[in-house]
Design a binder for these strands. Sequence first.
DNA 1: GAAACGTGGCG
DNA 2: TCGCCAAGTTT
Length: 363
Amino acid sequence: MREPIDPLTLLQWYDRHARIMPWRVSPGDRCAGVRPDPYRIWMSEVMLQQTTVAAVKEYFVRFTRRWPSVTDLAAAKDADVMGEWAGLGYYARARNLLKCARVVADEYDGIFPDTHDELLKLPGIGPYTAAAVSSIAYDLPETVLDGNVERVMSRLYDVHTPLPLSKPELMTLAQALTPQERAGDYAQAVMDLGATICTPKNPACGLCPWRDPCKGRLAGTHVELPKKVPKKKKPIRLGIAYIARRVDGAYLLETRPDKGLLGGMLGWPGSEWIEGVPVEAEPMKAQWKVIEGEARHTFTHFHLRLIVKTALVPMDRSPDTGEFMPLEEFRPSDLPTVMRKAFDLATGGSKTTSKDAPRSRAK
DNA sequence: GAAACGTGGCG
DNA sequence: TCGCCAAGTTT
């Protein structure tokens, strides 16, 4: 061991190579005394849970423009927050985001707590996010252990124990490296390293500030680390979605229950999604017509093939399930992606991806 | 500890 | 087409 693994080496790399993000205070500005806004750090960290930076950026800008402070967010309507989150996935995050904002506004005077333990009590904040907010927003020497840090530590110390069994060991190693000074920049630096240099495939070891002391690279095993327990294969489920349009243009929609898949989101009424043949579940009496093709979508633990049926219904008939939403209140972008795919199939392939179009009237 | 929980990009 | 992966948390 000729050369110790030094956090300062990484900080120097970060000073030159830090990525620019809408929520980030660059190391230069940080040095000049600029402090990050804990509200923005918290929001970015929740959005970044299991989600790529590229996907998050747009949502982050949109959310913080619409709700600039935690008290603004706490006062928002549930449906507005869920609609704004639509498309980002893992919708329990949006429900917990709002819950957390209301707790911070009501019980913490609108100020996020700074300690790991206190942050951990808040909805939607687990060990990673608590450490991220504590270190990045408040510069306390907490250690973040996300997928990037797991990969970097596994390679740096040539850990062959598979995840998630190796987590405690990786945490110990990561904590030992965490500096007392510049803890926030250091946390972001390890994650930037993992995201841009120490990548899952084709790591750019030639550019790595920790190239020389890296035990995995020395052993030649780095590319196969971290080891992971094999994943299960995804079954295929089938379902039917019903898209009813009233003659005045209103669509029949339902708000899904808070628990479970797509909880709290807007969606088309439909059958259960099961591995066998789905049972018809028409939300109202009508001339239902099958649309040719199917909407395909993959969730975390199953593939879905969704048959879509449509109907045009008169004004004087009420549904058994769901409610008609006036055309001027309906934005396809408020739907989770699978529901938007069903809508696109029903309306003839025109893609509806933009959140830019405002509701034609607010009320 | 295991399973549930979304989505899009990439090889 | 398909599996892997991305700044995890909750139950």
